[in-house]
Design a protein around this nucleic acid. Structure first.
Length: 730
RNA sequence: AGCGGGGUGGGGUAGCCAGGAAAUCCCGCCGGGCUCAUAACCCGGAGAUCGGUGGUUCAAAUCCACCCCCCGCUACCA
């Protein structure tokens, strides 16, 4: 079967953002890659939509030509598509002369067949700008509600559709002059003639997404009106009629024809047949777009194709809702959103594709937030999928170096193979219906299963006890990895390709078919050393300003008891000034009890409490350590218990509870103090006046955005015994 | 105002169009396991009268009616 995929053409008036990618290009690409792996012939095209007034206006503002603007954004957007791995067969552009040829031919044929006609209309003309104004470039007072900033096409205040002529006191939106109304001749597309056929054609489109079919039916209900398809501007495709030299074909009309022109161009470049895709009925046409583009693809473009005759109509029009940014619409002027160049400079394309898929607005608007992005990527992509692939690959690589043999299978092994099969089938079912999120959910479930399988099999134990079963377990684990690679390839093409190489294949995964996910790996195939697929995203907020997480205070040890059920732990009772607390400390191997008694220590007071063999530790004391020593931290002078510790003079503003996980991420180390320069694992410069008496001593540095030195007023915090510089604090 | 989307355990969600026995997944929480792996992974548990009211039905988160909240968009067009 042949599949034609048309993706809405991005307007070349700015760089595309994540919403465009997630709304159209990514889903189209996933679908295209899937279809190719299924063995279908796919032609996927799109391109830059480069005509129209907005571009001429941008050009005027910047003192450039429209072509320069179009060139710039065509280049930028092409590059983004490329980097994101959107596998277009051709990403064309409407300013290309070959496009113009196709458009003109299309135009003339419609005219011959009686679907285009000429008529006169009265249009606003700005004598100052010396041009006709598009409706929305005329502003004035709404005749219905009196709103003063109504546009020529619609009033923002009362929502009524307007005609520029209706406006009271109309002005040119660009220069503010008062427009005149002049008569101008234009060409109209006889949509009304095709209304019946459109309605008929729509009747069997029950498999379209709800939003698409509902919107379309609603739109047609009001009746289809003929539309002018020419404009009085100079930037665009010329009208192939005498007397129209100063007019151009209207953007929407020329842009949709791009699907055809790009196919023809692709044919010219590759020598393959565009007719096979456009005229042969054994081809299904899919279109991917955002919801705002629905009527163009479900009514106008099909009507144009009907008028032209013989060309294939859309089989499915897949429109997504919007991706919002923290609850708001992406907006360049308001600085709301994430732009692709920025995003691509920070993350691998597959990371973006992953989140784009998981959060795809297939049926309703969805929301991009950085918190959600970081969480989903870290927990689902990196931890679940990435980690499974890595643990399976690296374990096998280290102990076998090749794909181990598959011996006899037990129930769990059979279950795993069945799981792969079921996953593949369910994914097919969903992908065929273009339910991408659901398909991906099945895939994630297989990754989760991989972890379960690996855990249940525990190959690290089998390695010693039963080598044959270990080999089988790994063989199956790698098969799951292979299946994940193939079934995940449409979604995460770059990762899939990497995994493919690690598994030992030399060619591209895209030379293989979807169905191969079910076939076992060749036994004995040499593996390549696997590298970690993704690294976790570290939030910027967490990389500095961490000092504010810690509530460090000085305490005095009042009592030292041995833990009844543990041989390395002491139970300490400490005085924190206002209160006393119990700490459990693993110091028995380093300090005799009597030596600790009465010592002043540094305690993390807001650390979440933890249970150590039945005793609750209500905090943690800090100590410096190297290979041989553990030395508790202590103030080098008399300090009252309960006193807050400062870092380079700063008191922290800590949260009430600090998670242990977060605490582990904080970095502190022992340093030798020279002057403002201190030396730990590397040299640090402390921005804090260092008193004479601290020099030559050991101190503790908290590594924040800038290194901070711990102290209490004039009293330095030091390890109680000498620790190697760079020693970690725990 | 118009158009559109939504209210489901602590947070975020799936399910709703094609009504049916234990309401999905991720996080968090509690308890346990494992130590191959990127401090990851696995198992178990607590926790939801599915916004409200009324209706249809043998049966409703799912259909209908009314009501109450929230949000987005209304043109830089995914």
């Amino acid at each position: 079967m042949r599949i034609f995929i048309g993706v809405a053409w991005p307007y070349a008036n700015g760089p595309i953002h994540l919403g465009h990618i997630v709304g159209a290009y990514l889903p189209a690409d996933i679908f295209a890659r899937y279809q190719r792996m299924k063995g279908n012939e796919v032609l996927m095209v799109s391109g830059s939509d480069e005509h129209g007034t907005p571009i001429t206006i941008t050009a005027e503002k910047e003192g450039k030509s429209p072509r320069e603007i179009a060139d710039r954004y065509h280049r930028i957007n092409s590059e983004i598509m490329e980097k994101m791995g959107i596998s277009f067969d051709l990403f064309f552009r409407t300013s290309h002369p070959h496009h113009a040829e196709v458009v003109k031919r299309f135009f003339l044929r419609l005219m011959e067949r009686g679907y285009l006609y000429r008529d006169k209309m009265i249009l606003p003309y700005c004598p100052n700008c010396k041009r006709f104004l598009p409706d929305r470039y005329v502003v004035g007072t709404c005749p219905y509600c009196g709103y003063e900033k109504a546009r020529g096409d619609q009033c923002d205040n009362c929502g009524r559709t307007l005609d520029p002529k209706d406006l009271i006191d109309p002005k040119c939106a660009i220069c503010g002059a008062t427009p005149e109304f002049r008569e101008s001749e234009h060409v109209f597309f006889a949509l009304s003639k095709l209304e019946k056929r459109i309605l008929e054609w729509l009747t069997d489109k029950v498999y379209w997404r709800d939003n698409v079919i509902n919107f379309t039916r609603n739109f047609v209900k009001g009746g289809l009106k003929d539309r002018a398809i020419t404009r009085d501007i100079e930037w665009g495709v010329e009208v192939p009629l005498p007397g129209f030299e100063k007019k151009r074909i209207y953007v929407w009309f020329d842009a949709v024809i791009g699907y055809l022109s790009a196919s023809v161009e692709w044919s010219r470049i590759t020598g393959k047949s565009w007719r096979a895709f456009w005229i042969d009925r054994n081809t299904k046409h899919y279109y991917f777009l955002g919801k705002d583009n629905i009527p163009f693809h479900t009514i106008i473009w099909p009507a144009m194709l009907m008028g032209y005759g013989e060309l294939n109509l859309p089989y499915n029009v897949v429109a997504n809702e919007y991706l919002r940014f923290s609850g708001e619409k992406f907006s360049k002027s308001r600085g709301i959103g994430v732009w692709m160049p920025e995003l691509l400079s920070m993350f691998d394309p597959d990371v973006i594709r992953f989140y784009g898929t998981v959060n795809m607005p297939e049926h309703r608007d969805s929301d991009f937030t950085w918190d959600d992005f970081v969480q989903k990527v870290n927990e689902e992509l990196v931890d679940k999928f990435g980690n499974f692939v890595h643990r399976a690959l690296i374990f096998t690589y280290r102990h076998f170096g090749e794909v181990p043999k598959r011996h006899s299978l037990d129930a769990l092994d059979e279950e795993a193979l069945e799981k792969i099969k079921v996953t593949k089938e369910k994914m097919e079912e969903y992908l065929d219906k273009v339910e991408l999120k659901k398909a991906f959910r099945e895939w994630m479930e297989l990754a989760r299963f991989g972890n379960v399988y690996f855990d249940r099999k525990a190959p690290w134990a089998l390695l010693k006890s039963d080598r044959e079963r270990c080999e089988t377990a790994l063989n199956i684990s790698l098969h799951i990895v292979k299946a994940l690679a193939i079934l995940g390839a449409p979604f995460l093409p770059f990762s899939a390709e990497k995994i493919w190489k690690y598994l030992g294949y030399d060619d591209s995964i895209f030379q293989h078919t979807w169905d191969e996910s079910l076939t076992a790996l060749p036994e004995g195939m040499k593996l390549r050393e696997p590298k970690v697929l993704y690294t976790k995203i570290v939030r910027e907020e967490e990389s500095f300003d961490r000092w504010n997480l810690l509530d460090l205070r000085i305490a005095e040890i009042k009592e030292v008891k041995e833990h009844p059920n543990a041989d390395q732990l002491y139970i300490l009772t400490i005085d924190l000034g206002e209160e006393s607390r119990t700490l459990v400390a693993g110091l028995k191997n380093y300090y005799p009890a009597n030596e600790l008694l009465g010592k002043k220590i540094v305690v993390v007071c807001n650390l979440e409490h933890a249970n150590f063999r039945g005793v609750e530790s209500q905090g943690m004391l800090l100590a410096g350590e190297d290979e041989n020593t553990v030395a508790i931290l202590t103030p080098q002078g008399d300090v009252k218990p309960g006193t807050r510790v400062q870092a380079s003079g700063i008191y922290s503003e800590p949260p009430p509870v600090l998670k242990f996980k977060k605490f582990k991420k904080l970095k502190m180390e022992v340093v030798d103090i020279q002057d403002s320069k201190v030396i730990g694992s590397s040299e640090y410069r402390i921005e804090y006046p260092i008193p004479e008496e601290w020099k030559g001593k050991q101190g503790v540095v908290f590594l924040d955005k800038k290194p901070l030195l711990l102290h209490v007023g004039k009293v330095l915090i030091s390890p109680e015994k000498r620790v190697k510089r760079g020693g970690k604090i725990r």
